[in-house]
Simulated assay, not measured.
Amino acid sequence: MVTSSSVTTRPALVLASASPRRLELLAQIGLSPDSVQPADIDETPHPNELPRLHALRLARSKAETIASRLADAALVIGSDTVVALGRRILPKAEDEATARYCLTLLSGRRHKVYTAVSCRPSAAWPEGHSNERIVESYVIFNRLTPQHIDALIENGDWNGKAGGYALQGAAAAYIRQIGGSASGIIGLPLFETTQLLRGQPCPAGMGWVP
């Protein structure tokens, strides 16, 4: 691997996330990271932190944490998705009670989904650019009866999902409308990510995307 600032090969592409959804989204556009290195950071919102800024702070922190550990030339992608009702940041559902709480709140309502993506080069690639984007989308749920929520809980694809649901999962049967970036709602805005990668100064013909 190149460690000199004179990069003659493409720097490694590192995903600072263990999310299988983000790996699947990157594969959708023909990208396979050279390395997957989850960033173990505290994701607790700061007091009075707005959802949009929370998503951006976490995406940036993930990318910076991993970039600071790398000795070789690399570009790190960090991303975070926040589901919000107004100023309220909904938690990631790690148990059935939390998933039920989130789905009850979202029933029959329009909510926003903020997904931030941050690119950070390692110190061994000083030519690389640090850049970031945040995408705002919205989702409208149909009214969920207790039976609907029970079925979604039983399905289990809420586990680990912000807001207790996945657009690509069983909850899609109850989502009346979305606006914005579908890939952003799932976990990584592909258009914006592609633009960030195209803006990096890779050697001719060695970029990550066409």
Rank of each mutant, 00 (worst) to 15 (best):
V76A: 06
S68T: 14
I149D: 11
K161G: 00
I175E: 03
T194L: 10
Y165G: 05
M1F: 13
A171S: 13
V209H: 06
A39D: 04
L75G: 00
G199I: 12
T104H: 07
S32I: 14
W208E: 04
A116M: 03
L197D: 10
Y101H: 13
A84N: 03
D150W: 07
Y101I: 01
V139T: 11
L13D: 05
L85M: 12
E64Q: 14
G128W: 07
G180L: 05
Q147D: 15
I134C: 09
R21M: 07
V209Q: 09
R110F: 00
A71F: 01
H54D: 02
I66T: 06
R69C: 10
A71L: 12
P201Q: 09
A74L: 05
E154I: 14
M1N: 07
C202S: 05
R10K: 13
I175C: 02
A27V: 11
L103T: 01
G160H: 06
A16T: 10
I185G: 00
S4C: 01
V135K: 00
A74F: 07
S122T: 11
A173W: 08
A71S: 15
L26I: 13
D80K: 01
I66Y: 05
N155L: 05
D150M: 07
L56T: 15
P33T: 11
D42L: 01
G86Y: 10
E127R: 15
T65M: 11
Q147K: 12
A172D: 09
S181M: 07
V117S: 11
D40T: 13
D34M: 04
E49R: 08
A93D: 01
T81A: 01
A84M: 04
G86M: 04
P189S: 08
V14T: 08
G205P: 02
I41H: 07
S32P: 00
P33Y: 09
G180F: 08
A39C: 12
R52F: 12
S61D: 15
A166H: 01
L106S: 02
G78R: 04
E64W: 03
N142L: 06
D72F: 10
M1P: 12
L152Y: 13
W125E: 04
R133M: 10
E136D: 13
I186F: 11
Q200A: 03
I89P: 02
S4N: 03
W125R: 05
R176I: 02
L26N: 09
A63N: 08
I175Q: 04
H111Y: 03
D72G: 09
L105M: 12
R143C: 12
Q195L: 15
A97D: 14
G164T: 00
T8K: 14
F141V: 00
K62A: 10
Q195P: 09
M206G: 01
T193P: 03
K112N: 14
L53G: 12
G30R: 02
S137E: 05
P38S: 12
Y114N: 01
D42T: 07
Q200I: 10
D34I: 11
S79D: 09
S107E: 10
S137I: 02
T8L: 13
L152C: 10
G207T: 15
A18H: 09
L167I: 06
I66P: 04
A67Y: 07
T65K: 12
G30W: 00
G199L: 12
S183G: 07
S79H: 08
G199Y: 08
G207H: 12
L56Y: 10
E49F: 04
A84F: 08
G163V: 00
K62P: 07
G30A: 02
N48A: 15
S6D: 15
G207W: 10
